[in-house]
Design a protein around this nucleic acid. Structure first.
Length: 462
RNA sequence: UCCUCAGUAGCUCAGUUGGUUAGAGCGGCGGACUGUUAAUCCGUAGGUCGUAGGUUCAAGUCCUACCUGAGGAGCCA
């Protein structure tokens, strides 16, 4: 007999049919006559109610139907006699697949704190909230590929192990096969990396952008979607050491095309979730963040506000608000400034462009004013910077000049520079923090709760 | 990395100006109950008070260091 998932039973119920159900027991209620067993198999947020007439089942068997146990049920799918669910299963056979000792099973019917659930990340998938979050995470990963595939972008796998230390996006994790205490030394007493696996120092990537540009400058439009690593000792609800990033890179795009793509992309992902994950979003809206659905719909409805860094500085100077940090042209915007612009002034997502070159990366296209670069940051309410991108500098001389000023080693990036030597073209791209996007779309306020097994300082369990 | 707060039962927390045997709710277990919805009612077990020092006649409570977690800041995605 073919197993029916809970999702199938709810979305296309065949009343009075005989069904086979397998899943994990969430709760069990009842009296001395009848037991009500809520069974969940993770295919959908809802659990289905299994009704067992206690006279029909041995007491020893029913005792083993405990919270957390896995069971197999054969029964008749019927319209529910009770309130709270449309259909239920009138059980005729129950088999225990796996016992779960209720004395030690850590999940209970009542809600748990997210902090506690992080300690039992191996079991938190079995809660409604994390089931919803990770189903949505899947849906969004799928939607990312759908979006770019439909637009003719190619999914490019950029390396996870990299020898380039040049981008300066943050501290890196070293990758080596040398033993920490027995590493071979050279004549100067330094570690001799020529004896390491790759014959040189290597790290985990902090970004696939530079390699992505190489692909775009041949394939026209590419995107990367993979893990990235930062060894920063960051302890905030928005940072992790291992996270996933989506980095589209497009030839023949200027910064305006880039902004159009970023806005369209984000709205597509939000719309996709609203259309495909209704039940999960409604649950999160009810239990986690009451303003969630309204906020998502609001973002869809309104164009993102596009302003230059200089205009933003003017707004902040005129603002009737005292900031902890100074507002002055040339200084980077602080969290409080970004939040003011997004949450109080414009009250919608904001794209800021044309930042002072001194606070931005070497590869960004230099404007004619000699002071600013064609950077763009997309700022979202609550989570801040969700996208950072730019039009890239395609002029070899200008790029090299800037690299020298910023002490970026040209010899290490010879391959990057060659794209500017041979048929260079205008191009642009950006990076979207996938996990931060999940935070925004699920209403979860800590990035550790949208990643199955998050990696943070002093924490690499599971 | 810096600042602030927290760590007491499986979970969420209370615990007075330091004072006898450390409390509750939930969860677990036992029982009652003819359809329950985080069921209800009765009963019951369960604690090296984060770790290590120190002050004191006496420390869950005060002091110091460390560990872990959370929030804010920086770095950024």
């Amino acid at each position: 007999m073919k197993r029916s998932t809970v999702k199938e039973l709810f979305t296309a119920p065949e009343i009075n049919s005989k069904v086979l159900l397998k899943g994990w027991v969430r709760t069990r209620r009842g009296n001395n006559q009848v037991a009500f067993i809520a069974v969940n198999d993770g295919t959908i947020i809802h659990s289905i109610q299994v009704v067992a007439d206690l006279q029909s089942f041995p007491e020893e068997l029913m005792k083993r139907v405990t919270t957390g146990s896995s069971i197999s049920v054969i029964g008749k799918l019927v319209e529910s006699m009770g309130k709270g669910q449309s259909v239920e299963i009138q059980a005729s056979e129950i088999e225990i697949l796996g016992d779960s000792d209720p004395e030690v099973y850590p999940l209970q019917k009542k809600g748990h704190s997210f902090e506690f659930l992080r300690d039992i990340a191996h079991l938190r998938f079995r809660t409604n909230t994390f089931g919803a979050v990770f189903r949505i995470r899947h849906a969004l990963a799928f939607a990312v590929h759908q979006y770019y595939n439909d637009k003719g972008f190619f999914y490019l796998h950029t390396p996870i192990i990299t020898a380039s230390d040049a981008e300066g996006a943050g501290a890196m994790f070293r990758v080596t096969t040398l033993e920490p205490d027995g590493a071979p030394k050279n004549e100067d007493g330094e570690v001799d990396y020529t004896q390491d696996f790759f014959g040189r120092p290597t790290n985990l990537t902090v970004s696939g952008q530079l390699e992505g540009e190489l692909g775009a400058l041949a394939l026209s439009s590419i995107y990367t979607f993979g893990p990235t690593f930062r060894a920063e000792n960051s302890n905030t609800p928005r940072h992790v050491a291992e996270f996933w990033m989506i980095e589209p890179e497009m030839a023949f795009y200027d910064i305006n095309d880039n902004m159009d793509l970023a806005e369209d992309f984000l709205k597509y992902l939000i719309r996709y979730t609203l259309e495909h994950c209704q039940d999960d979003l409604e649950f999160l809206n009810k239990m986690v963040d009451k303003g969630l659905l309204e906020r998502l719909r609001f973002v869809l409805k309104h164009p993102f506000e596009r302003k230059s860094y200089s205009e933003a500085i003017e707004i902040l100077i005129k603002a009737d608000k005292k900031f902890e940090f100074p507002v002055e042209w040339g200084l980077d915007l602080q969290s409080e400034h970004e939040r003011y612009l997004v949450e109080e002034h414009f009250k919608r997502p904001v794209i800021l462009t044309d930042y002072p070159s001194i606070i931005k990366s070497f590869y960004m296209k230099q404007n004619d004013d000699g002071k600013t670069v064609r950077a763009m940051d997309v700022l979202f309410p609550q989570i801040g910077e969700i996208i950072g991108g730019s039009q890239r500098e395609e002029n070899l001389d200008k790029l090299q000049n800037r690299m020298r000023k910023m002490n970026i080693p040209e010899d290490e990036l010879w391959w990057y520079l060659e794209t500017r030597k041979f048929g260079t073209v205008e191009h642009s791209g950006f990076g979207l923090g996938f996990d931060r996007l999940i935070m925004f779309i699920t209403g979860m306020s800590n990035i550790r709760d949208v990643i199955p097994f998050p990696r943070t300082p002093k924490s690499a369990d599971f």
